[in-house]
């Protein structure tokens, strides 16, 4: 918070005791209130949209809070019930599984895509646009689209597969667990790989061309150039892509709510979905708040591990 233009002598004259003159190299504290003014808008936002709701979530989670009827203080009863709620733990486990699989899939698709479109060709721009296009669709709209694409009776996929003679009867991926998870991952990769590609592309383009050239002159092969130069130098954008993907996958809701609707047999209920069910199917707002809080703790733990990696500079490792 050093303001290079702030006149140091004035500050000294105002606040300093004459017996102990400050060393002139240390600039005086700038006007504190000015800093506060600059921070005020974001403080208002953080307080109003995060801290107050967070406090209210905590407050609600200590109550039996039905949508209709009387609110009753129950202390930690909601949290005690959470510990034995098999459905919740199952959905947390499922969300973790989904996160690992979908993040791997997105990275596996986005990195080659980024390498492909990172060329000084004129057509590269066109392909970047094509790969990025699904990103601009809303998640809810994309899920609804895929719900109908996957419809066994009138969906496009079933018609195409049958038309091509590949299958005799329409496939019904949503009726068993792994196929259902598979099509969801396919849809999410289609929807979000373009965004990860752009993040990775910025990392790729920040690699100085002369480093690569020097490696070429030294006779490094394509693979060792990629492994020894490209990957380490784009480490930060890789980590950023990872953090963003993991966080959004842990909060997945739309695709399961709309496409699988939690089925088959409640096996694809994500953590946020189970909060939704507690709050807006069972109308237990207090219990839903307690679940939200537990999910927040889990998310903060995961994110802080990832951010710790992100903070390490590549030259330190």
């Amino acid at each position: 918070m050093a303001f290079p233009t702030s006149p140091a002598p004035v500050a000294v004259a105002q606040g300093a005791t004459p017996t102990k003159p400050r060393p002139p190299a240390q600039p005086a504290e700038p006007k504190g209130w000015l800093g506060l003014v600059f921070m005020a808008p974001s403080l208002v936002f953080i307080t109003g949209l995060f801290l107050i709701p967070l406090g209210m979530t905590l407050w609600m989670s200590l109550h039996n809070w039905p949508l209709l009827g009387r609110v009753k203080f129950t202390g930690l009863a909601n949290y005690a019930e959470l510990a034995h709620d098999m459905q919740l733990w199952h959905s947390l486990g499922f969300t973790l599984l989904y996160t690992v699989l979908v993040t791997t899939a997105i990275m596996a698709v986005a990195l080659p895509l980024a390498l492909l479109v990172d060329r000084p060709l004129r057509l590269a721009g066109l392909f970047r646009t094509i790969y990025f296009m699904p990103v601009v669709i809303g998640f809810g709209a994309a899920s609804t689209l895929w719900m109908w694409l996957l419809n066994p009776d009138s969906g496009v996929f079933a018609q195409l597969l049958r038309g091509a003679g590949l299958v005799d009867s329409a496939p019904r991926p949503l009726e068993s667990f792994w196929p259902a998870l598979g099509v969801i991952i396919l849809m999410v990769v289609w929807k979000t790989a373009g965004f990860t590609m752009v993040i990775l592309l910025t990392g790729l383009q920040a690699i100085p061309a002369d480093v690569i050239e020097a490696a070429k002159i030294d006779g490094a092969s394509v693979f060792s150039r990629f492994r020894r130069i490209t990957l380490p130098l784009m480490r930060n954008s890789l980590l950023l892509a990872l953090v963003l993907n993991v966080t959004s996958s842990m909060l997945a809701f739309d695709q399961f709510f709309i496409i699988t609707q939690g089925g088959p047999a409640n096996s694809t209920i994500s953590a946020v979905f189970s909060i939704y069910l507690a709050s807006f199917s069972s109308y237990r707002l207090g219990y839903g708040a307690a679940m939200s809080f537990v999910l927040l703790v889990v998310l903060v733990a995961i994110s802080s591990v990832q951010l710790a990696f992100l903070r390490q500079r590549p030259e330190e490792s």
């Binding site: 088959p264 047999a265 409640n266 199917s281 069972s282």
Partner: peptide, 24 residues
């Protein structure tokens, strides 16, 4: 008094009962 939670909810006991007894 709890139609949504018993009968309508996708994770509710009624839906699980029908799916479990007929297809399980």
């Amino acid at each position: 008094f709890s139609s949504d939670e018993l009968f309508v909810s996708r994770t509710g006991p009624f839906l699980n009962l029908i799916q479990g007894t007929i297809f399980g």
